[in-house]
Design a protein around this nucleic acid. Structure first.
Lengths: 350, 350
DNA sequence: TTTATTTACGAAACCGTTTTCGGCATTGTT
DNA sequence: AACAATGCCGAAAACGGTTTCGTAAATAAA
């Protein structure tokens, strides 16, 4: 067990004070060029690396940010992490990843921990269960900048980076209707998540505008449990039952995939019998059977933008980021799953 | 700007010494039950959270691990992160994520930084460029446990968690041949990454065993640049040229996806004209057009196993993990993309 | 009653940096 | 020659916990 070398041993080795070493490392003007070189040289031969925790303690600065996600199963968050990492790396920051697993309790525990000086800022996408922002307020109270990305908490004043969910929901509805759908449905995973509400509201607005909205039959279908099999059966029932939808907008990728599986099993033709559009960042959509029309969020850009705002808040200490509100529009990729078919064409002509 | 409360203010508030507070928090037997309760109560009303860096500095323990990945674009690493996080969370550890972007220089910088006491252990999947393990050796020298997962560095003594690459490559080759392929090819992304070499070697062994291996025409095709378009053209050329393969094993998901795109564009029928098997963890493989046969790594389990070994190394200080070698077998999902077709059947019969 | 033991707590050193402040040369200014 | 300015460096006090060691009081053992 060889002795850990620190700034003191370096100082002793060079017959300098620790203060000098420390200053030499940050290229202070107080230190002569010659001395700096000596220090650097010795540091490299001794394999010295400054202890980040001592430094953080003294400077009250961690050079670390936290990213709190509901889960990383989805491709969206993978891409977002890339975007975040890209700018963190450039700034010389470290990034801690936390998973809340869609549980509010876990989210709260994580957020509270972030309040300890461990991080200089936090990026968060809230869980489906999150109904209050008190825990996040506490972060703000301690002057730790927070920015929501993708999944925000409404009615709470913080920086946010989201996509144009309402417009996309609207666009999806109009598109399906234009392609001949009479009874489109919206598959949602939450009745409280703003991201889902907005998409659903936009969708509903499209229906209303086209005179296809009926209060008796809510076009929004909720899939709130996490069990894949359960969801599969639920969709199967819906899609094979009477009054089944002839078009579906899936609020998340997973629901579209399960819908595809059901249709394959039940031999229901997409898009002839049912048209599908999904909110999704999956890059394999073009090779689905049939290729899947997607509303694709710029996940990387969202992550990037969010962290850029965060760093503004971190670096400019008396700069208020809580008014920052960035909307990064998604793009619609029209593919076969929502194509007009001869069957629907005829109906339209009739 | 309200004053940050620390253990000292807590002590003052309660007329106790800081030592007592500190001990109360770790439920020391030296502290009476009554005092502990007073401390906890006051801590909660004052919203006190101990400073982790002060603690880490003194204890020489960070309760943090590093995960170094080449990239997180692939679904594999998303799942692996989940597995890692699952056990880290249980142990009360924090996880830092680093991306090397397949660059050795970046990897080295990251690894060197990990040598500062910032982390108690590191999980790493090396880059394609990594040809030496000196930087990792330095970690070991400082008694920081390291475990390779998925992408290991061969000939270096550390804990490793991998999958049965050779066997899978062999199996894939045999499967294609059995289904009627006469000229199968293997799409690789690296000629040095053990993971690719092993898969390719297994593949080659399958060919040799079936008498289909020819030295004149190496069945291993390399795609070493990162440009999607470039790769697309390369594959297009290969697949439309003369002497094109009638079967492909893709060493990574991305190559299979691009191959699909090429085939769709060029109207080449899968599996009739070319059969495809991919090493992939993508969960949408069943709904590809056609559904994709995959050799699926248990990414979550690999991450989980790797971090469990790592924590063994962290917790039992004089326990040598460098001999740990876990192989988590992948599972083969046979789907339509590698199905025997009437065309190939006839050939076989002839 | 005396002595040993246990219980409950405090004083102070320590972890490895950063930062303030002060001081001694050396150089520049009148 | 006297003084100010500058360049270069060191001593020491933080930062906020943890840990060792000591000790007074309370209890148990003799």
């Amino acid at each position: 067990m060889k002795k850990k070398i620190n700034i003191k041993t370096l100082a002793a080795e060079l017959n300098l004070s620790v203060a000098t070493i420390s200053k030499a490392f940050k290229d202070s003007h107080e230190i002569s060029k010659a001395t700096k070189e000596r220090v650097l040289a010795m540091a490299s031969t001794l394999n010295y690396t400054p202890n980040p925790y001592a430094s953080s303690l003294r400077k009250r600065k961690s050079n670390t940010i936290a990213v709190i996600l509901p889960e990383v199963a989805d491709n969206f968050f993978s891409l977002a992490i890339n975007g975040i990492q890209a700018v963190a790396e450039k700034k010389g920051y470290h990034v801690l990843i936390y998973l809340s697993h869609e549980k509010f309790d876990i989210e709260k525990t994580i957020v509270d921990d972030c309040n300890s000086g461990r991080v200089d800022g936090v990026l968060i996408s809230i869980t489906k269960e999150t109904k209050t922002a008190e825990h996040i307020q506490k972060l703000q109270d301690e002057n730790i900048p927070v920015v929501f990305f993708d999944r925000e908490f409404e009615g709470f004043k913080t920086a946010r980076v989201v996509t144009n969910d309402y417009e996309c929901g609207y666009l999806a509805a109009k598109h399906l209707i234009e392609k001949g759908c009479k009874k489109p449905a919206f598959f949602s995973i939450s009745s409280s998540l703003p991201i889902c509400i907005k998409r659903a509201d936009g969708f509903k607005a499209g229906l209303i505008e086209s005179g296809l909205y009926s209060h008796k039959k809510d076009p929004i279908v909720y899939f709130t449990d996490f069990n894949q099999e359960e969801t599969f059966n639920q969709i199967k029932k819906l899609v094979t039952g009477k009054d089944r939808p002839d078009g579906v907008v899936a609020s998340v990728e997973k629901l579209a995939v399960i819908l595809y599986l059901v249709c394959h099993e039940k031999n229901i033709k997409i898009p002839e019998e049912i048209k599908v559009i999904a909110f999704s960042t999956v890059d394999t959509a073009p090779i689905f059977n049939p290729s899947l029309s997607t509303i694709t969020q710029s996940a990387f850009e969202i992550g990037k933008a969010a962290s850029e705002i965060l760093f503004k808040g971190i670096e400019k200490k008396n700069y208020d980021i809580t008014n920052e509100y960035v909307v990064i529009p998604s793009t619609f990729f029209e593919r076969k799953s929502s194509q007009q078919t001869s069957a629907s064409k005829e109906k339209k002509i009739k």
